[in-house]
Each structure stands twice: as structure tokens, then as C-alpha cells.
Design a binder for these strands. Structure first.
Lengths: 157, 157
DNA sequence: ACCTGTTGGTTCGAACCTGAACAACCTGTG
DNA sequence: CACAGGTTGTTCAGGTTCGAACCAACAGGT
């Protein structure tokens, strides 16, 4: 009984484990809430919203599929699926690329711009409510720094 | 042209948007890497590992399904699925609960303990590498604080 | 022009997750 | 005891995700 604590395997110390588990919990619930809000208010999944948002941030509201996949954080096949969904509902259109026969360019339709204009405020409000408003100014910058640090580390591979 | 910037809809300011998108990116890639490492090294999905870990942290290495679902951050039906998978591979066993006829208790088998002992160090090393080692001590505590703040906010509903 | 290696996007299969519907069971109130 | 209302866990259908395999098209060297 003396040599091993009864708490089971713990290869991270107390603090580290708590931080990691806290992060996992936050990440899970944040995703759930965002997903739910978008679905209810705009009929979009989070990935779909992300696609619209990334397109809207690109010049001309259009991007090649691969670039879009990178920006919207999904796999190539995942993006094919999502764009197909968005095309069904008329929010995105696909056209072929002139300079590269293989290329496909996804671009926002007028309805896509419209949908985004409608749904972005609600989405932003939720992000603000759940994520930003809970933090003091100091906490926010510290958090942003930490995220940036982890991001660089992840990128370096 | 003058009144609206060409950057598309942006209902969060520069800083806030960058933090949110940074978080999304980090969260996505962190999940991917963890998932991949566990799959490669232990043949487990992250949810499955989570189940084993939570069970191992519980007294006797066993928990009722509902408690386990709460701890492992999945829905009830998701847990049923995962436990079924883990049962197939012999890492978890189910037994019925004496005090409550409806209840099912999931408990780690010896193979389950063994698998966890084998895989935890690799998992911990990755978490350390991607998540913890990228942060200075200050950044770490600031991050942990921020996560805790968000967590409380999410819980308050 | 012709290989060779690389890239762009889609398709396919399998795994996964979720919410809703369900049956079995508990609980407490009359 | 009976019965209404809540809980427990599973099942089911539907949508979603990923990676591997694939074909078409580019690019560079010979």
C-alpha cells in the first residue's frame, strides 16, 4: 500500500494533469455549445460555418479546395463532403480553376454571404459569452500567448 | 468601398478573433496528434483511453456507466459504444450493480490495467511535448487559470 | 515528346458520435 | 399498495469524420 498511491497511473503531476483534463473538458463543452447554437440558429454545423467564414475572409470570397481545407482545419475528404453539403443548400458554388485544370474553386454565393451576415453576430456573441467574457484582460492575453506558443510548437513538424 | 473593410464579416475584434481561431487550430491539431499517437502505439482511440484512465482513477477501477460518461466526456450512447469496443478487446468488463437492478458497472480487467500501464507513459510524453513543454512556467499557470475560469463559466448552466 | 514524381480532389469503406425513442427499474407520495 | 415521474442503459437511424486508394493533371529533367 505504501509504495503506490491508489489513484492509479498518473504520469503527469497533479497540476499538469488538472490542466490537461481541464483543457479537454473545456474543449469538449465549448465545441458542443458552439455546434448547438449554430445548428439551432442558422442550421449550420460548425465546420460549415468555418468554411463560410474562411471563404468570406478570402479575397473575392473564394478559395481553392486545398487552401480552404487548410484554413478550415479539416481533411481534404472532409472538405469535399462539407462543400457538397453547402452546395446543396446553395451557400457555396464550385467552379473550375482556369490556370490549373485540376483545381476547383469554392466561392460564396450571394445566399452564402447573406447567411453569414445573419449568423455571425449570434456566433460571435456566444464565443464572447463563453470564451472571452469569462477572462480578465490579463487572463485573456496570457491565454492568447499560451495558445500561440502551443501553436508554434505544433506547427514545427 | 470606404465604409466596409474588404476582410469580410468580423464581429470580433482582431485580437479576439485571432485568439479564438488560434484556440480552434490548437484544439484541432492537438486532438489529431493525440488520437494518432494512441492509435499507433496502443491501438486505442482517445475516447477509449479516456475511459480506461477514468476507470483507473476511480476506487476499485470501476464506475457506473453514467458516472463514467460524465467523467469521460461522452454521451451515454457514445459510452455504451466505447465500452462495448473495450469489452471486445478484453480491457473492460461489465457487471451488474447489486444495489440497483438497472445499473451497470464497468470495471478494468487485468488486461485493462496492463494496457494502461503500457500506454500511459507514451501518452503523457506526447501531452508533455505538445502541450506543457511549449509553455514557460508563467504561461502554464496563466493558461491553467484561464481554462479554469472558462470551465466555471461553462459549468454555470 | 516522354517518363517520373508530385499535387489536387474525389470516392469509398469503416469507424465514430449523437439525439431520440425505448424498456426496465427506482422513488416517493398519496 | 399503486402509480406518476424520474433514472439507467441500450438500440437505432442518421449524419459526420478520417485515411487510403485512386485518377487526372502539372512540372521538371532528359
Amino acid at each position: 500500500m505504501a509504495e503506490t498511491p491508489t489513484t492509479g497511473p498518473r504520469w503527469l503531476n497533479e497540476e499538469e494533469l488538472a490542466a490537461w483534463e481541464g483543457y479537454l473538458e473545456v474543449s469538449t463543452f465549448l465545441n458542443r455549445r458552439v455546434e448547438q447554437q449554430l445548428k439551432d440558429d442558422a442550421g449550420l454545423s460548425h465546420p460549415q460555418y468555418e468554411v463560410l467564414a474562411r471563404l468570406s475572409a478570402a479575397p473575392g470570397g473564394e478559395l481553392r479546395m486545398t487552401e480552404l481545407a487548410g484554413a478550415a482545419l479539416t481533411s481534404k475528404s472532409g472538405l469535399t463532403y462539407q462543400v457538397a453539403q453547402l452546395e446543396k443548400t446553395g451557400l457555396v458554388r464550385r467552379r473550375s480553376c482556369e490556370s490549373d485544370e485540376r483545381g476547383i474553386i469554392a466561392c460564396l454565393t450571394e445566399a452564402g454571404w447573406q447567411k453569414l451576415r445573419e449568423s455571425a453576430p449570434g456566433h460571435a456573441a456566444l464565443v464572447r459569452d463563453l470564451f472571452l467574457d469569462g477572462l480578465t484582460g490579463e487572463q485573456f492575453t496570457a491565454f492568447a500567448d499560451a495558445v500561440e506558443a502551443i501553436r508554434l510548437r505544433l506547427r514545427a513538424e
